[in-house]
Structures are given as structure tokens and as C-alpha cells.
Design a protein around this nucleic acid. Structure first.
Lengths: 121, 121
DNA sequence: TACGGAAATGAAAATCATTTTCATTTGTGA
DNA sequence: TCACAAATGAAAATGATTTTCATTTCCGTA
């Protein structure tokens, strides 16, 4: 039943634990691996079901997959040049947890991104 | 130059200040307004450029538009039934501001959503 | 008022990520 | 070796969004 294709997982790891389905597919192609796009999508869905990876959304709506267990962090993105800084989000974790409790939600995750203009732009 | 069609804006308002382009289009159709989907998309883009509305993404990747100036808040969304609770995000505002300052970013905005399972699910 | 060009409009086609379908291949246990 | 379930992937379907392009609406000016 588990379609968690190990080659897909290892490619996601090699990609820095952060990539879209299309990127993983292209990466595997480039490395000469024989795999279909469908299989990549199915493997990723399966990994998500098994809670081995998380999904989030890029600004353009494309889904990106991230290894769970990766140090959880957030991003500060420049609207001008696209530069991205990884930032720590301790405050967010606490906030998310508190809000979830307050409303009786369980099994919660969250997304949080900050965007603005960096010094250069 | 401004394509911020006022009918689209007023429909977005009537929708509770929160809807996808497709929803706005369907709503206008149902109300007998004559408008094309293309125009709805263009109007929304224009409203975003003019900073009259914000864009964010639903879990399925569809873009949803929200009136700026609406009291700024965040969402707690149930992955099971889709139920959404508006929550206050004072902690986030402070966090975003602090992080932006720390890295010299200006003109910053942010997104933050929490998702999990509600009591019923 | 008539003219000319700029902006707005929308139908249809193009794009792109993602999902579904379906026929084929692979793996596994009896 | 056989039969059958699971895996695979090509191709088609889907759905949101964008682009193209021909037409229409506006507006300022002669």
C-alpha cells in the first residue's frame, strides 16, 4: 500500500529537504533516473500521508514539500530581489499552540512568512 | 490605467471581504451582472497592485482575495471540515516587525495561518 | 459633433500544476 | 509456474490563471 518511493524521498533530501514535485521530477530526470511524473506525485502524497513530509504553498500556488524533522523555520523574503533569509520563529510556535488550544484544535501545523524590501532594494 | 473595476470590489465586499476569483465571478453571474472571468482576474490584480486587497492561498492552492483595511487577522482552519476561525495575531505582528528590523527589511507584510483538526473532526 | 487613439472588455486559446484513467509491468506468495 | 495485487507511467482530464486578440467603450480635441 505504501507508495513512498525511496528514490523520491532521497531526491527530496538531496534537494535540501525543500522542493516542488516538478522540481524533484526534473532533478531525477537530470540525474538519469527513470521515473514518471505521476509516480513522483504519488510518492509525495504518500509521504505526506505517512507524515514523513509536510506540504506548504509557494506564493504562486505551487505545492512544495519539506521533510518533517527538518529544523522548523520561517522565511523573510524580499519582494524586490527574491532574496530569502531563514528566520527563527519561536514566537510563532507559541502563538500557534496557544490559539489551537484556545479553540480546541489538535494536530496543528502552521505557515508564516514575512515579505518586504531588503536593504539593497 | 486603473482596472480596479468597482463592481468587482463591491462584490468582494459583499462576499464578506474574502473570496476567490472564481467565487466572485460566480457570485456576479448569479446576481445577473454581465462580466467576464478575465475582467474579474484583471480587476483583482489591479486591486492588489493598488494595495486595496491582499492575496493569500487556500490549502488547495487557489488564490483568495481579502480587503485590506479589514481588521488584520489570521485564520485557524480545520483540515477536516474546512471550518475557519478568525484569530487575533498580536504576537505575530510584533514578531514580523522585530524580524524585519533585525534584517533591515522595510515595507513588510506577512502571512500566517494555522491548520489542524477542530473538536468535531 | 465627428475623429482618433488609448483603455477596457471578454471569448477563446494557451499555460501550468495536479489528478485521473487505464493498460502494462513487476513482484510475491501459493 | 501461475495468478493476482501493487506499482508504474503515458496520456488525457481538470481547474485555476494568464495571454491573445479582436471588439467596444471612453475621452479629449479639432
Amino acid at each position: 500500500m505504501s507508495r513512498s518511493n525511496p528514490r523520491v524521498l532521497s531526491t527530496l533530501e538531496r534537494a535540501g529537504g525543500f522542493a516542488s514535485a516538478q522540481e524533484i521530477y526534473r532533478l531525477m530526470q537530470r540525474e538519469g533516473e527513470s521515473i514518471g511524473l505521476t509516480t513522483v506525485y504519488r510518492a509525495l502524497q504518500s509521504l505526506v500521508n505517512d507524515k514523513i513530509v509536510d506540504v506548504l504553498r509557494r506564493d504562486d500556488g505551487e505545492a512544495i514539500y519539506r521533510l518533517c524533522g527538518e529544523a522548523h523555520h520561517h522565511h523573510l523574503v524580499c519582494k524586490g530581489c527574491g532574496d530569502t533569509v531563514e528566520i527563527e520563529g519561536g514566537a510563532i510556535e507559541k502563538w500557534a499552540k496557544a490559539m489551537a488550544e484556545e479553540h480546541g484544535f489538535r494536530d496543528v501545523g502552521h505557515t508564516a512568512e514575512i515579505f518586504g524590501l531588503c536593504t539593497k532594494c
